[in-house]
Simulated assay, not measured.
Amino acid sequence: MSAATTFTVPPELSATEPPEARGVARDGVRLLVARDRGPLQHTTFRGLPRALRRGDLLVVNTSDTEPAAVDGHRGDDSPVTLHISGPAPDNLFVVELRTPDGRRVTDARAGESVRLPRGVVASLLTAHPDPRVIEGSRLWRARIPVAGGLRPWLTDVGRPIRYSYLRGDWPIDTYRTVFAKPGPEFASAEMPSAGRPFTPAVLADLHSRGIGVAEIVLHTGVSSLEAGEVPLPERYQVPTDTADAVNATKEAGGRVVAVGTTVTRALETVADPAGHVRAGAGWTHLVLGPDRSARTVDGLVTGWHEPTASHLLLLEAVAGPRLVGRAYSAAVDRGYLWHEFGDSCLLLTSRTAYRPV
């Protein structure tokens, strides 16, 4: 994070429950619109279509959210919560251990077993991503043998991953966006939350104003990155129709607006130095930041991230440190709410549109 984006979030700005529990509709959360030219604007998410222009293209993530938290016990019988971040090679899974009150477990060791519901046992094999670590890793590669498959078991015994700032237990549908499409593979460990405020009414307004919507998939792992920790590889798919829509939008002078850091990472993974994108799928290792700025994404719909989050470097790679810093300073001053059930921001740049040679 640059010096331009330096801030402190007061505890009272954490959204501790879904907006619906506060009497606010999904699309009724606040929206800060920040352009690199002109003043900041404060509206609600229902006003998003009015902040865009005919010919712009929104790109959304259709990844579903898994009930990826399971309660269990360690070898000494102490309670623990296992977060399943996603698949790893050799039929393994990347997992994280948390205490029942949400703190990271710092003394887990390779070879340890965790007893889970219905007789399932998770075996921690090696630290992730560095297998040389023997003790104290945040993430582990684990074997979780489940008769009948992991996902049906999770449907019965799992719940959404939740952190200590949240109050209450909320059903899995609370953690799904309007775009979520269940599929055959393990999806996101946590909700692609930038898309949560979208509703059919917002989508209808976008359509009526000539603003397009295209889809990608990026399955995200646990979001509990520590200070200085870079994003880990994630699975993505950018279909041909979306690549064509992005390129046509750029050629016509429109703006490509990513809904969330997940969409930004996927699109930029398949963007060439001129900003032209191609269809693609696989694992992305791309880290956007000072050494790699955005090439094709002109704007970003996003929630509000913690001061030490690597997501801020991605935001700066799209919109620049000055604009991101202005937006975050205003959000703190005006009491915007943080985290997955909080308020939203639209960052828009005036980057020169891509023109094919």
Results as ranks from 00 to 15, higher is better:
Gly325His: 02
Leu232Thr: 02
Arg235Met: 09
Asn247Gln: 01
Pro231Gly: 06
Pro231Tyr: 04
Leu312Ser: 09
Gly342Arg: 10
Val257Met: 07
Thr296Gly: 07
Val230Leu: 13
Pro273Ser: 12
Val277Leu: 15
Glu340Tyr: 04
Val332Pro: 07
Ala252Gln: 08
Lys250His: 03
Ala317Asp: 05
Arg292Cys: 04
Gly280Lys: 11
Pro321Gly: 13
Phe341Lys: 08
Gln237Thr: 04
Thr302Lys: 07
Ala331Val: 03
Gly325Ile: 01
Glu268Ala: 05
Ala245Gly: 01
Pro290Ile: 00
Gly303Gln: 14
Gly335Asn: 05
Leu300Pro: 04
Ala327Phe: 00
Val230Asn: 13
Ala252Cys: 03
Trp304Cys: 00
Val256Ile: 04
Thr261Met: 13
Trp304Ala: 03
Thr302Ser: 13
Arg295Ala: 01
Ala258Lys: 08
Gly280Pro: 10
Gly228Tyr: 08
Gly282Pro: 07
Arg255Gly: 01
Glu268Tyr: 11
Arg292Ile: 00
His276Glu: 06
Thr308Ser: 13
Asp343Gly: 03
Ala266Tyr: 12
Leu288Glu: 00
Gly280Asn: 11
Gly303Trp: 05
Val301Asn: 09
Ala243Asp: 12
Val238Pro: 09
Trp338Arg: 13
Thr240Gly: 12
Asn247Leu: 00
Val297Trp: 15
Leu323Arg: 04
Cys345Gln: 14
Thr262Val: 10
His305Ser: 08
His305Pro: 12
Pro307Val: 08
Gly320Leu: 11
Pro307Ser: 06
Arg235Thr: 13
Asp298Ser: 03
Asp333Trp: 01
Leu312Asp: 03
Leu286Ser: 03
Glu306Trp: 02
Gly228Thr: 10
Gly253Glu: 03
Ala319His: 04
Val318Leu: 11
Val230Trp: 06
Trp283Ile: 01
Arg326Glu: 02
Arg265Leu: 07
Arg235Cys: 03
Ala327His: 04
Gly299Arg: 15
Trp338His: 12
Ala245Ile: 00
Pro307Lys: 08
Arg265Tyr: 08
Gly253Asn: 05
Ala330Pro: 03
Trp338Glu: 07
Trp283Val: 11
Ala245Met: 06
Arg265Ala: 08
Glu234Gln: 14
Ala252Val: 00
Arg292Ala: 05
Leu286Glu: 00
Thr302Gln: 11
His339Asp: 09
Trp283Tyr: 09
Val238Ile: 15
Leu314Arg: 14
Trp304Leu: 06
Ala266Trp: 09
Thr264Cys: 15
Gly342Leu: 11
Val324Asp: 14
Gly335Ile: 04
